[in-house]
Design a protein around this nucleic acid. Structure first.
Lengths: 195, 195, 195, 195
DNA sequence: TGTTAATCGAGACGGTACGTCGGGTCTTGCC
DNA sequence: GGCAAGACCCGACGTACCGTCTCGATTAACA
């Protein structure tokens, strides 16, 4: 699927939102068709029938663009609420791993980019904090249901859940069983069964 | 400190280990003096008085060389044995974070490189497995000391320990308190105090 | 004499002639200072404060660049007009041999390069045809002056003149006496003296 | 057609002629199959199941090897004797151009190599002188037959004949009609028809 | 209705690094 | 000593990708 031949034009002395959308669309397209290696700034610009200048007008560098792409692609960070924490985490792992199968390598790339780009690193930090924070309501519900051990530190648990997801992404094990992983990660945190 | 002027020569129709050593030496030297950005293939070859051809005879690409460099620099993966698992893990975290402060960005870079180089990815997988396996004896000792909960899965725990280390590296939090981290990570796995 | 520090920039979405000029200038400079061995693509780019990408944007390969350099350096292919064909040819030989003393090895190199690069070969063919054609007006003047035998084929003679020049270049006899050579080459073509 | 699997061995403390033969055979084979670009020292050595050391024991550099290869391939420099000079030259041109069609590009390469290798240049000079000298007997016979103009300088003519052959080789016109060329080259040298 | 100011497409450009290629030298171990 | 094998140094080549720059066309808001 190639981009349409009509080229967007200026809409006056202000940014055209269609332009940034078209750029992200093009990038997503490229990612799907060519993989990570195809995501060069030149290719994105060409695919989007945009100019590199425009690319850099919208994002300060390649990493920022990639992060924007990832955020948009990922959609809402909805957490499940099944009434069981293991189930909630497992489903989230399943969903996230599924998404990562496609464009999760994109996220790896962002992590990589963050290693030598402070701007990307900052954005990534913010992103991580949000993801960790997303878990707190879920964990609090589980606490109320008395699923967790009494001394469980919710923030630490939230980080652990995220850390394992990242670890599996970076070590290319997205095909792992999300239920097993969730069970393993959560197991020590759960309230011991009263006999 | 520049390299000595003596040049290694062929030692016949077989690889000369001195050559690869010299290359890694040169790379380590460069890393220390110029940082990550100085670790170009050209610079390494020049510094080692080697040819790039030779470099690529030993490692298929830059990432593989970097991994070799990291592995060698890291030295033995000795795990502590203090009689307390938390203490063991905390000390290892402390040691590893300390090492990473210096050349941990090297490791980040390798992880990054692995995302678009299958050879590096494979090497990294092997490396991760080794690191995880390194923990098993330590965990078994803790098990014998009855520090761990009865149903603790040692492999899962080992992975968790490593995962958190990587997570902190990649999210640039090497200044975190290793003892707090160790305590947090291990806490749910520990045997509940019998009152 | 190093190049000035001012760096040329883009002049919009079209090639900047100043750039190619600067590249050829730099190459000429290098040739004079370092000789043929100094004419590497890297050195030329560095000297011209250009990037290798730009170099290859202008010429498809090193040989093409060298040919452009040669053509420009040679200047106009002005042929003499002394009223005597032998004199004309001799003077041209003298001038060309003189030029070749300096950068004629450049021309040899181009001929060499043409042997395994079709692009250069084509350019060289075109160049040869031009040089041969350059002689025709001169020969026609000589014909009018009744210097040449009646049955002289001007095109063949033109080629012969050029062929001998190349032959002497390639066999490294640029120190030969151009007048003797011209006399020898032309002698059989000249009208026999009427007694 | 690949080389036999048996490898020649040393025949004691003296050069093994089979070795140099095998090397030239291999080079000829490569030239035919892969063209000029395939004639690298590595490839020749591999093809001949020889070592590069041996290559350089027999010839001081690549150019010398190529020249040896050319001389051997060309066979005797027999000149024709048909009773007509034009016919003699035309036939020789035909024969040489035919040979060059196959491996004449090799000769171009040697000329090229001579431009930056003095050893090859010397060998080439000697070779040229021989080729020019080869013509003298032929020309003397023609002189006796009164085919040539009285004032023809035989040495100059011989050089001219050779120069045109080289020129056509280097300008990639081996498909030219050798008879036309011979006629053109010789025409001004021939005795004018008495009417 | 012109003038201004900004967006935008296009693509040349500098810079930096990568991986590859080829020539020629060397050392070992076998004959 | 010749010879096969192949590691090694050196130097160069062509390619890739990033981020910057300059043009000229376009359009909306303002004069």
């Amino acid at each position: 699927m190639s981009r349409p031949a009509v080229s967007r034009r200026s809409i006056g002395a202000r940014p055209n939102p269609e332009t940034s959308d078209a750029i992200l669309d093009a990038a997503a397209d490229l990612l799907r068709r060519k993989g990570l290696r195809g995501l060069t700034t030149d290719a994105i610009a060409r695919e989007a029938r945009a100019s590199k200048t425009t690319l850099y007008r919208w994002w300060p560098n390649r990493g920022a663009l990639l992060l924007a792409l990832y955020v948009r692609a990922k959609g809402g960070s909805t957490r499940e609420d099944t009434g069981s924490l293991v189930e909630d985490v497992a489903r989230t792992y399943a969903r996230v791993f599924g998404a990562w199968q496609n464009e999760g390598r994109l996220f790896s790339l962002i992590i990589a980019e963050a290693q030598h780009d402070d701007g990307v690193a900052e954005a990534l930090t913010a992103f991580r904090k949000e993801r960790v924070a997303d878990w707190l309501p879920v964990l609090r519900r589980a606490e109320k249901r008395r699923e967790l051990a009494d001394d469980a530190d919710l923030e630490v648990l939230a980080e652990s859940i995220v850390a394992h997801a990242w670890f599996y992404l970076l070590t290319k094990r997205l095909d792992a069983d999300p239920f097993v992983l969730a069970a393993n990660v959560l197991h020590p945190w759960l309230r011991k069964q009263d006999s």
